[in-house]
């Protein structure tokens, strides 16, 4: 099926006008499927880590949000062990005026501001609420272990 002009333009802009700390490269054999990397934001327990993710643009994109999942393991109250992300703009608050770039920036921002009150990974959220310092230390450990080359 033909790609929409929108997907072509977004892909071009992602390549030509890259956002520092974020990359999204489409697969040659499926231009709706992107390999994504997101650098952990500075002053967060994910700093220094490079997190891999996969992003898929469903058939009715941009009417429906992209599907995105972390491939690198990450200790975060809003990301579960399968890499699924709990973020409003990926679900009910999606708007077709958003785009791959803005979504990835939102995810990067989520890494910088975990929200244990709206958890996806309950155990992590609980740990986070009980002892934030310890949780942050674990997150840092995981980053060291999984997100560094």
């Amino acid at each position: 099926m033909a790609l929409s002009k929108r997907i072509i333009k977004e892909t071009q802009r992602l390549a030509e006008d890259a956002v520092p700390g974020i990359s999204a490269v489409p697969h040659d054999d499926n231009l709706r499927y992107f390999d994504v990397t997101i650098d952990g934001p500075s002053q967060s327990p994910y700093e220094g880590g490079v997190f891999k993710a996969e992003l898929f643009l469903p058939d009715d994109y941009p009417m429906t949000p992209p599907k995105i999942r972390f491939l690198t393991r990450i200790y975060h109250p809003n990301i579960d062990r399968l890499g699924r992300i709990c973020l409003d703009v990926l679900k009910s608050n999606w708007s077709p005026a958003l785009q791959i770039r803005t979504i990835l920036l939102s995810i990067q921002a989520l890494l910088g501001a975990p929200n244990p009150d709206d958890p996806l990974a309950n155990d992590v959220a609980q740990a986070w609420k009980q002892d934030e310092q310890a949780a942050i230390a674990t997150a840092r450990e995981w980053t060291e272990k999984h997100a560094k080359p």
């Binding site: 929409s4 002009k5 929108r6 333009k9 941009p62 077709p96 005026a97």
Partner: peptide, 8 residues
Amino acid sequence: MSCRVCYN
């Protein structure tokens, strides 16, 4: 003047 939904 391009549409924010379809980029056309």
